[in-house]
C-alpha cells in the first residue's frame, strides 16, 4: 500500500508542481500587491493600504461595474436556461443518427474561437451590421438600433458563447432521468406537458442548477466578449482588471478587483457544491 502511495505521489508530482508554480503561487502573490498603494508605472511600492478594497465598496464607479457584471451574469444565465432546455431536450431524446448531428452542431461553436464568434456578432449587430440593414431594408425601423456597445449586444454575445455549456450539462441531466418515470406518469393520466413539469423538470433540477452556476461564473469572468461587443467604454469587472493592468498600470487596484472576482467565483462554486450535496444526499 505505501509503495503504491509513493509511486502515486511520484506520478502526480510533475502536474502538481506545475499547477502550484504556474497557477496557485502567482494568484497568491497578487494578494500582497493588492494591499499596496498605487504608483504609476509598475508594481514596486512601499507601504500597505486597504484603499484598493474599500474603493470597491465605496466608489460608485465600482458599484456600477459590479452591478453591471452581475446583471449581465443573471440575464445571460436565465436566457441560456430558457434557450438551452428545449435544445437539450431534443438532443437527449433524438434518435442516435440525429443525435450525432446535433451533438456536432452544439459542440462546434464551443470549439470555435471566441474572437471569431464575437466578430460574427459585430458584423450582425453593428449600426451598419446585418440586422440593422435588414430591418431598415424591410422598413421596420428608420434609424439603426443600438445593438452593440451596450448590455444588449453583450448579452447576445455571451449567451451565444455559453449556451453550449448549458446544453451539455442539461443533456447529461436529462439522460439521467429514468424514462420509466415519465411513462409511469403517462399511465397515471398525466399528459406530455404535465409530465414534463411534474416529473422531468424537477428531476433535472440539480442539472439546471449546476449548468446555471457554471454559466454564471463564466459570464462574470468573461473578458474577450465584453471587450469586443461592449467596447472599451462599457466596463465589466474583467475588462476593468484588463485596463488597470495594461492601460492605467494600476496593478494594486487591479489585483484587488481580481481577488474580489476570484472570491466571488469560488464562493459561488463552493456554495453550489454544498447545496447540491445536501439536495441529492440520501435522506
Amino acid at each position: 500500500m505505501s509503495a503504491q502511495r509513493g509511486i502515486g505521489l511520484l506520478l502526480i508530482t510533475p502536474l502538481g508542481l506545475v499547477l502550484l508554480v504556474a497557477f496557485v503561487l502567482p494568484v497568491l502573490l497578487m494578494l500582497p500587491t493588492s494591499f499596496r498603494p498605487y504608483t504609476a508605472g509598475g508594481p514596486a511600492a512601499t507601504g500597505w493600504t486597504l484603499d484598493n478594497y474599500t474603493q470597491i465598496v465605496t466608489d460608485p464607479y465600482f458599484h456600477e461595474v459590479l452591478g453591471r457584471t452581475f446583471t449581465m451574469g443573471a440575464v445571460v444565465t436565465l436566457l441560456c436556461l430558457l434557450a438551452g432546455y428545449p435544445l437539450a431536450l431534443v438532443l437527449a431524446r433524438a434518435q442516435p443518427a440525429t443525435q450525432r448531428w446535433l451533438t456536432l452542431l452544439v459542440v462546434f461553436p464551443l470549439l470555435l474561437n471566441l474572437v471569431v464568434r464575437s466578430f460574427g456578432w459585430i458584423a450582425l449587430l453593428a449600426n451598419h451590421g446585418l440586422v440593422n440593414n435588414a430591418l431598415i431594408a424591410a422598413h421596420l425601423i428608420a434609424a439603426p438600433l443600438r445593438l452593440m456597445y451596450n448590455l444588449t449586444g453583450l448579452v447576445i454575445g455571451l449567451v451565444h458563447i455559453l449556451l453550449p455549456f448549458m446544453v451539455l450539462v442539461l443533456v447529461a441531466a436529462l439522460r439521467a432521468v429514468p424514462r420509466d418515470a415519465e411513462a409511469a406518469a403517462g399511465t397515471l393520466g398525466a399528459g406530455p406537458l404535465k409530465t414534463f413539469f411534474l416529473v422531468t423538470l424537477p428531476l433535472t433540477g440539480p442539472g439546471m442548477f449546476a449548468g446555471s452556476v457554471l454559466v454564471f461564473v463564466l459570464s462574470i469572468s468573461a473578458l474577450v466578449t465584453p471587450r469586443l461587443l461592449g467596447g472599451p467604454a462599457y466596463k465589466v469587472m474583467a475588462t476593468v482588471i484588463y485596463d488597470e493592468f495594461l492601460a492605467s498600470l494600476d496593478w494594486p487596484s487591479g489585483a484587488a478587483l481580481a481577488f474580489v472576482l476570484t472570491l466571488i467565483a469560488l464562493i459561488i462554486v463552493a456554495a453550489a457544491g454544498l447545496l447540491t450535496r445536501r439536495w441529492t444526499a440520501a435522506p
Binding site: P86, L105, G120, A123, H160
Partner: peptide
Amino acid sequence: MTAGAIAWPLRLAAAIILAFLMLPVLVV
C-alpha cells in the same frame, strides 16, 4: 413524451436555437 416522438413545437424551438448558434459563423 411518448417514446420516440418529439412534439413539433419543441423541434421548432430547437431549430431556431440551433440557427442562433450557427448565425455568426455563417455571417463570418
